[in-house]
Design a protein around this nucleic acid. Structure first.
Lengths: 349, 349
DNA sequence: ACATAACATGTTGACGTCAACATGCACCAG
DNA sequence: CTGGTGCATGTTGACGTCAACATGTTATGT
């Protein structure tokens, strides 16, 4: 049957190389290289001829050879646990666009489960990858636990985690955001502010909670016990059911917008009016927050700036050698919408 | 000042190569290669010695050289317009995980603006990239307009667009989903179903609209004029304000969940009760939909399956040569929650 | 007219890996 | 004891590109 003389299963049809273009144009491959790299010491007629040959043959430079020669891949690895969160997605988008603008491509290494094992696998995979630097977007404690040694000399920037001080870190100013939210609610006259925190395993959640507590204490307000969710809207709903039945809760600061959405639902279901009976503030300012009912007052995080700054620092390190590990903090902004209002004392029954 | 004899600005500190490991272990580099690739024709003592040397020197294989030699990059390019949408993000996540499981990495090429120019730039960039295949996740009409010739022989799979029949396509069954939504509302007794469509530039929006219309016609129902949004929650809110004042609208099928969120807000504001006065169905089943108020009845899209299938087809093509361009359609599933209810005739005033 | 500069173009080799082939040794059948 | 077989290991060269150096050609100054 398969007696065809030529093996059709040959290697995957390598494209033409510089040599082929050179032969076609009647020049040396070095001249092709010069044209390909846009050097100007090529006669114009020759250049045109080479470009034409490239066109005809469909030449495209082989990045592997280029990388092998130069020792540079012009590629950045991104390790990220779950792309499926609003913040990560935005950050990744900004990273990709920034990197592209500097001529770098992005290789993403997904971490399927946030376990030490999976993180280790991801790092191992990444180390074998052809990248010039790495951006890590995972909660620090997972990294800390992962027993993987990142090779010295490979530039690394960490996002969203302040633990590893041996690498530059870029992060949103979690404390500022939490303070803005809490302070604003106090200014509206609320005696104190309750808090629906994120999971204990999260540093971001921890820092938001700390700043909330510190703000209350600075204002000599009582610090009520925290409610706790897992970032999901459903967990917010569950906490919301508890919150709804405590009539003394007049203001709640929720550690992210998704949980706030769940809280809103619970409050609606239990007939507590927002904001006249209870004010709600979120964190993130996701795209949909202005269309919640009511539109959510929330802390805006500039994920784009975080991604851009991370790339900026990383590229500087790649191209100009290591610098001092710094921590860059991106400020937040309170966006006031309709889920917050002046404190109204509970009617005595 | 800088009279240090050794140039510290040498090339970016190339790591040790096989040769270095070989010298350290006292074997030939070919033996190191064999150990590195896990071949079994190496004596155990030798293998241990080589592994130890690798460990000591911190050796990691150079992917560029490997790729140059083999002609394979073990990398897949993904062209995507805006990562910042629920569906794209989910799809990308699935793509990344599937590819990683097969030992491929993902290079993402962002398209900053959905213009022909930006798409062309993205393709050009991708063509220079070291990838074995491409997944395109952009609305087809933009691709069609982009005057870029993808090189023949480079495997391509298209997601979310049925126009290019010269490449395999994987997509959600938009028509099925729209039919499920519309049919369900009719079964609840609604005389007909209104539709808030996505932008005209979107094929997905177009197909959802067509199927909605066809379903109404099949049931001999009047086809009301469509409302139109741009996928955003805000556009849904604006349409929702119009919808709210038309009391004859008892059921609306919204082309995605985000617009549905905006519609819900508008209806709440205008005092129309959901679902007793008006039923709402969305499309996508985003993570938060079950925490909308009320929880949204919606069409579940299996983005994960789409991403996985796309990678499966692409890898088959990369590894076993081209196959027939097929269109693979992933079914949807109606998720009934609380935003829909039996038709209640409007009270005569 | 001749040395010299300025520039276009060609030649060579190395980057790190691995397939193909070559070598060398141990063991076994006859 | 010989020829062969099987296995571990070594040697060579090629993948495509580009820096460094080499060569050739033309213009410039004296």
């Amino acid at each position: 049957m398969s007696d065809t003389p030529t093996k059709p299963r040959g290697r995957p049809a390598r494209g033409p190389s510089m040599g082929d273009v050179a032969a076609h144009a009647g020049v040396s491959s070095q001249t092709v290289s010069r044209v390909s790299n846009g050097l100007n010491n090529v006669e114009d007629a020759t250049r045109q001829r080479v470009l034409a040959s490239m066109q005809v043959l469909g030449y495209r430079p082989n990045q592997a050879a280029r990388a092998l020669r130069s020792g540079r891949f012009r590629s950045i690895g991104v390790v990220m646990f779950t792309l499926s969160s609003f913040g990560n997605m935005r950050t990744l988008d900004a990273i990709a666009i920034s990197a592209a603008q500097s001529g770098y491509s992005i290789t993403i290494v997904p971490v399927e489960h946030p376990t030490q094992k999976d993180v280790s696998i991801a790092f191992t995979r990444l180390l074998e990858q052809a990248v010039d630097g790495i951006v890590i977007v995972i909660e620090a404690h997972i990294i800390d636990e992962a027993d993987v040694e990142l090779p010295p000399g490979l530039p690394v920037v960490v996002i969203d985690s302040a633990a590893r001080t041996d690498y530059p870190v870029v992060d949103t100013d979690q404390a500022l955001g939490a303070r803005q939210a809490t302070q604003y609610l106090l200014e509206l006259g609320h005696p104190t502010v309750w808090h629906l925190a994120g999971p204990e395993s999260s540093y971001s959640a921890e820092r938001r909670e700390e700043a909330w507590r510190a703000t209350l204490e600075a204002g000599s307000r009582p610090v009520p016990p925290v409610f706790r969710g897992d970032w999901s809207a459903v967990s917010g709903y569950e906490a919301g059911l508890l919150i709804a039945q405590q009539m003394e809760v007049s203001a709640i600061f929720t550690a992210n917008d998704q949980m706030a959405l769940g809280v809103l639902r619970a409050l609606h279901e239990r007939g507590r009016h927002i904001p006249s009976s209870i004010s709600v503030v979120g964190f993130d300012d996701m795209a949909e927050s202005d269309s919640f009912w009511p539109p959510l007052t929330t802390v805006h995080q500039d994920f784009g700036a975080v991604g851009r700054q991370a790339i900026k620092i990383l590229l500087a390190e790649i191209e100009h050698g290591p610098s001092h590990p710094t921590t860059l903090v991106i400020p937040t902004r309170l966006v006031v919408r309709e889920s917050t209002g002046l404190f109204t004392p509970v009617q005595a029954t």
